[in-house]
Amino acid sequence: MPLDLKIFRVVAIAEACSWAGLLIGMYFKYLGGGNDIGVAIFGPIHGALFMAYLLAVLVSARLHSWPLKELLIGGICSVPPFATLWFDHRVMKRFRAQRDADVPAPGEEPKRATADV
């Protein structure tokens, strides 16, 4: 797997985990007695991971020539809680399918790049 997709995957999962921490912190702040330490801790972490996720989407879209629609879906998935996990699954599924299509079947010759002469 290319390094950019590995980074994308780690950031997408971390962003979802930070959502969980932020939501738990918001519960305790607004419904559980007014303790805002969870929001104070996870708010900045989530903000940084949110920005890192958007950057990872942009970089991966550029390097893998994603269509504009895919780029927009990736960006929109940064907003709802845990949607980055769904988008990560979508990207990895597409990557595996593309990788498997490039692998020759048993007994088949490998595909070779041809140069225009």
Rank of each mutant, 00 (worst) to 15 (best):
D4E: 13
K6G: 14
F8Y: 11
R9I: 00
V10Y: 14
V10D: 09
A12R: 09
I13Y: 13
A14M: 13
A14D: 09
C17S: 13
A20R: 04
G21Q: 05
L23Y: 06
Y27S: 12
F28G: 08
F28D: 06
L31A: 08
G32W: 01
G33C: 00
G34L: 02
N35F: 00
D36N: 12
G38L: 00
G38H: 01
A40T: 09
F42P: 03
I45D: 03
I45W: 01
I45A: 08
I45E: 07
L49R: 06
F50C: 03
F50D: 02
M51Y: 06
M51G: 05
L54K: 04
L54G: 15
L55T: 10
L55D: 00
L55F: 09
A56M: 10
V59C: 02
S60M: 07
R62G: 02
R62T: 07
L63Q: 15
H64D: 15
H64C: 03
S65E: 15
S65C: 10
W66G: 07
W66I: 00
P67Y: 07
L68C: 02
L68T: 08
G74Y: 01
G75K: 01
G75L: 14
I76T: 12
I76L: 15
C77W: 03
S78A: 15
S78L: 01
V79W: 10
P80K: 08
F82Q: 12
A83W: 14
A83H: 11
A83K: 10
F87K: 07
F87S: 03
F87G: 03
R90F: 02
V91T: 05
R96V: 10
R96Q: 14
Q98A: 15
Q98R: 14
Q98L: 10
Q98I: 08
D100T: 04
D102T: 09
D102Y: 01
V103R: 15
A105T: 11
P106K: 06
P106A: 07
P106S: 05
P106L: 01
G107L: 02
E108S: 11
E108F: 03
E109F: 04
K111C: 04
R112Y: 08
T114D: 05
A115S: 09
A115R: 14
D116A: 11
D116M: 09
V117R: 15
